[in-house]
Amino acid sequence: MPLDHNIELSYSVKMLLARIGKLTTTQLNLINLLMFQAVWWLSILYQNSAIAISSGLLLLHFALSSHRQSDLLSMVKVVACGVIIDSLLTYMQLFEFQQMPYWLGLLWCHFAISLRYSLAFTQRLPFYINAILGGVFGCISYLAGARFDAVVLPQEYLASVMILFSVWLVIFPIFVIVSRQR
């Protein structure tokens, strides 16, 4: 009997993989949107305790993607810039973390991937619209993280808002350009 069970399991895995290969762009974008939101909330609420789930979801993305190499290349570029920027902001004492925020690196990975999937619509927007979207939503993301104690913003609130808005006003459109499929 165990042999029959293994054959059934193997068949089920093959069917699942075949089905995954037939996902539409809309389905992939929806899956990406849900994964990014899940990772954002898990990271903000559980920080380094969410690393295993965030890593697993990142691996799931690459299992589903038919553009693994270009996804990886785009992700490396965006993550490198994002981690450098966050490190500089931490060095400049705009951010403080209770512990080393490894979760933030994974959040950057998922954000980078979302630029090519659920946020792909930004590829068609003018630079200035992406700048405004980045300024507003990038800033809001960090403010929400501070509200949930994932990060401390030790500077005066308005100064933090202005700096975050300005940084994201510049970097989001650049990230959109960097993430374009080649």
Rank of each mutant, 00 (worst) to 15 (best):
L34K: 04
Q93K: 14
L58S: 13
A146E: 03
C139K: 10
L164E: 12
N32I: 02
F175S: 07
E156K: 08
V79L: 11
I84T: 10
G135M: 05
Q47M: 11
L58H: 03
S74W: 00
A112P: 14
E96I: 00
G56P: 11
V151D: 02
M162W: 01
A120N: 13
S74H: 01
G135L: 07
F121M: 08
L158P: 03
C139I: 00
R116I: 09
L104P: 05
F165Y: 14
H110N: 14
S141W: 14
L9E: 09
Q181A: 13
A63L: 15
S65Q: 09
S74Y: 00
P154F: 10
S66C: 00
G82I: 08
G138Q: 07
L88R: 05
S54K: 09
S166A: 15
C81I: 14
L143R: 11
Y142N: 07
I51R: 05
D149S: 05
I20C: 06
Y91N: 07
L119R: 01
L33P: 02
H110G: 09
F148H: 08
L17R: 15
S141I: 00
W40C: 05
V176E: 02
H5F: 11
L94K: 04
F148V: 02
A50I: 03
T26P: 00
T25D: 04
I44T: 09
L9R: 10
R68A: 13
V136W: 03
I113Q: 08
V161L: 10
A50Q: 03
S118Y: 08
S65H: 09
M35H: 10
D86Q: 08
I140L: 15
A159Y: 04
V167L: 07
F97W: 14
G145V: 02
A50L: 04
I132P: 00
F165K: 11
S87A: 15
S66V: 01
Y46I: 00
L72N: 02
L143S: 04
N48H: 11
F175G: 01
L64K: 13
A112G: 12
Q47P: 00
I44D: 00
M15I: 05
I31S: 04
T24A: 01
I113V: 15
T26W: 06
V151E: 07
K77V: 11
F62A: 12
A18E: 15
L73G: 12
V79H: 09
E156D: 12
V13N: 05
V136H: 07
H5A: 09
I44K: 00
W103Y: 13
V83R: 03
G134V: 10
L73N: 14
R68N: 12
L64Q: 03
V178E: 07
M100T: 10
Q47N: 05
L57A: 05
Y11Q: 11
L104F: 10
